Simulated scan of single mutants.
Amino acid sequence: MATSDRPGNAVLRYAESRKNLIGSVCGLAGVGVTLTGAAGALWPLVVGGLYAAGALIAPPDRPATPEFAEEGDRLDGLRADFARLRAYLTEAELPPAARERLTALDTLVEALLAPGWVTDPEHLHVIARTVRQDIPEAVDTFVRTRWWARFAAGAEQPEHHLERQLAALHEEAKRIASDLHEAEEIRQRIHTEYVEGRGE
């Protein structure tokens, strides 16, 4: 899953972010304190410190979870929704371990959604649920929880839950891949027996 983040885009996105806006308001309060003469010669530290404090306490901007047009388990619609999911995931800020697990899951789901592989309705339903519900919910819940977790000392880190969820979803997708592999092996053996049997 590639990210196409140019430095200019990242700067523009930060300039429009909630962190920058709240930090700027706090920085302006620091300018106000400076104008009263209370900050003295330390006014740059006061303004900078208030900006940093505002940026730190601001809740992070969350990318909007994708809206999926399809609800059924048709492969074409599912592939289109998977593309929407990928665009959403490139915007989400995730820790490296979770991003690594997500990349592995993304690669496997992409392979399963290649035309001509998954035809079983139950398998398609599981993949559809993974793409449209499980992954977006796991990532969005992590982003929401991560900000509040810093106010709850001793609480379990939200990235641990995200990693566990992604690991479970990866195992579920691997079971589908294993079923496909087994079906292809059976098909290959049957064809071998058929071809060899023709010469008898």
Rank of each mutant, 00 (worst) to 15 (best):
E91S: 12
N9I: 00
H123M: 01
W43M: 05
E171T: 15
G23L: 03
L35V: 02
V31Q: 07
I186Y: 00
Q157H: 15
R132V: 05
G32P: 00
S4T: 13
L50I: 04
Q133T: 13
D5E: 09
A138P: 11
T119L: 09
E171S: 15
R86Y: 03
Y14G: 02
A83L: 13
S4N: 13
L180N: 08
A153C: 03
A104E: 07
R74Q: 08
L89I: 08
A183F: 00
G37I: 07
E182Y: 05
A92H: 07
A173M: 14
R175N: 14
P121D: 04
E16H: 07
L102C: 05
T34I: 02
P63E: 01
D61P: 11
L166K: 14
V131D: 05
A173H: 07
E71W: 00
W43Y: 09
I22N: 02
V195F: 12
A149L: 11
F68V: 02
E93W: 01
F151T: 08
R146E: 15
D5I: 11
T192E: 12
D61I: 04
K19V: 03
E91T: 13
A29G: 09
R129Q: 09
A2L: 10
L113W: 05
E184K: 05
A153W: 04
E71S: 09
W117C: 04
K174I: 05
V118R: 10
H191Q: 13
V118C: 08
Q133Y: 10
V25N: 01
E110Q: 08
A58I: 06
T103I: 01
L78E: 02
S17T: 01
R86S: 14
P115W: 01
V131N: 06
Y194C: 12
E193K: 12
T65D: 01
I186Q: 01
A87R: 15
E67R: 09
Q157R: 15
E193S: 10
L180C: 09
L35I: 04
P66F: 03
A138I: 06
G30V: 03
D73M: 06
L166Q: 12
R18S: 07
A177H: 13
V11W: 00
G77T: 04
R146F: 06
L75N: 03
K19C: 06
A69R: 07
C26S: 11
N20M: 08
I190G: 10
L50T: 03
A149K: 11
R129P: 05
F68I: 02
E70Y: 01
D106A: 11
L89W: 05
E70V: 02
D5A: 13
R150H: 14
P95V: 05
E137R: 15
D5H: 10
H191E: 13
E163M: 13
A149I: 06
G8A: 07
A58V: 09
A2C: 02
